[in-house]
Design a protein around this nucleic acid. Structure first.
Lengths: 243, 243
DNA sequence: CCAAAAGTGTTGGTTCTACACCCATGC
DNA sequence: GCATGGGTGTAGAACCAACACTTTTGG
């Protein structure tokens, strides 16, 4: 029971980033190889300590996004996942991390010669499945971020954050298929997605010289909440997590 | 840019609790009147500093639940809402709070004579609407917690956390109505809720000597994810929050 | 018997899925 | 023309809101 002279114990604060994007129709995550102990040489989420006592965690997340990944926070979706504060999560001592989920639209390869040179895109499946290890409790954070993305695809317009300024409906479908791990019927997707008021706004015709008939272009609509929602097929239900 | 001798700035860590329950079919929140500065005399969320450097935040939330509210964490639903870390959120300095959402089933009046004696239940509407002030950024935390509860009622079995071990379908309907602020058709609710596989399991007949025909009793079923979801009526859509 | 609350039937409209089919383009 | 991907039509099933109606209890 704290008395008047009792002082609460200080902790150190970091931010960690789950940065997702689509590369050739597969979901990828940006990881950095750790150059120093602990977990030297292992893959880890980008992140780091807050710069000073006056820095907001959201601003710290933007800064790390720039420094470690070479990405501009203005270009992408960024939302808080939660705090990870288990006392033993970092062998250096009591370090609490606030995790953020970032969704990147285009796919700029991490530039060599910058602070982001240790960063590389990996297929999420390899790390989400646990086949490849991650430093600290980053595997847990990755799984939470992935489930957040899967869930928010259902009832928010988050999918558009994976696309560029404008996109075709098939590109949008690839997002849903990659994140959910399901194939969807193109015809039904085409109408279902357009039936959600405020989700998308048409802009014009494509001139994509790939093959076949050109597709209409869309941009993200004004509404962020999807009603009715885009429900994923059944078999992916998963139990809740306390704590 | 941190060099080798650079030390990250320490912060102090607190937990804050949004504790919701139903009292006479209205949604209530547990608040405490602050006895000390800052915000002395104002209403605030229950919470406090972590006890020592080895205490997990989840455990700290359980402890505060016991100390400040007189509630046992084993009896209720407890999930993390997120971290609130704006540098100016506490005039005493850099204090980061991890907020938790707690859903309490029964309604034990806060016991006088305990540490929880400063606690009292209030209709949420009074504080969610902003009519009555709250200390710190607790108004924001309350709104986030409320929206989380409203949203999770749609696609998880969270509603059962408001009820006792067993409950009637009408009691469950009161939960949805109170949290959503909508009246629902009892006949359609009756069937809709039973049509979700794994949501509820029947146990026996009621002997509720109130009035009318006795209702069947149910308990929470094995599944925590509702498919199909229980969608709330349309007009309550709300925009997303970055940061 | 009456009031009140639980539970059932029904009906008409919307939505979903699966799939056949047509359209516009590059080669 | 023909392959390829974009877009439309449609039938059958499933779902859903609204509301009439029946059942079971306490007084």
């Amino acid at each position: 029971m704290p008395n008047e002279t009792w002082q609460p114990p200080p902790v150190l604060l970091t931010v960690d980033l789950v940065i997702l994007t689509l590369r050739s129709s597969a979901l990828h995550i940006l990881l950095i190889r750790r150059g120093i102990d602990p977990f030297q040489g292992q893959w880890a989420l980008p992140g780091g300590f807050i710069a000073d006592a006056g820095e907001d965690v959201f601003d710290a997340a933007c800064r790390e996004l720039q420094e470690e990944a070479g990405l501009d926070a203005g270009d992408l979706h960024l939302e808080q996942l939660g705090a990870y504060a288990h006392p033993d999560r970092d062998p250096r001592g009591r370090i609490v991390s606030v995790a953020y989920l970032a969704i990147a639209p285009r796919l700029p390869e991490p530039e060599a010669g910058t602070d982001a040179s240790a960063a590389a895109w990996h297929p999420v499946e390899e790390f989400a499945s646990g086949r490849s290890p991650l430093a600290f409790d980053h595997h847990r954070i990755l799984r939470d971020g992935l489930e957040r993305a899967r869930s928010k695809l259902e009832h928010t317009a988050l999918a558009t954050a994976f696309c560029g300024e404008t996109f075709t409906l098939t590109e949008l479908q690839r997002v849903y298929e990659a994140v959910w791990g399901f194939e969807l019927d193109p015809r039904n997707f085409y109408r279902k997605v357009q039936a959600v008021p405020g989700f998308l706004t048409a802009v014009g015709l494509d001139r994509r010289p790939t093959k076949g008939r050109p597709a209409r272009l869309f941009r993200a609509g004004p509404l962020r909440v999807l009603r009715p929602p885009m429900m994923r097929p059944l078999p992916l239900i998963r139990s809740e997590n306390r704590r």
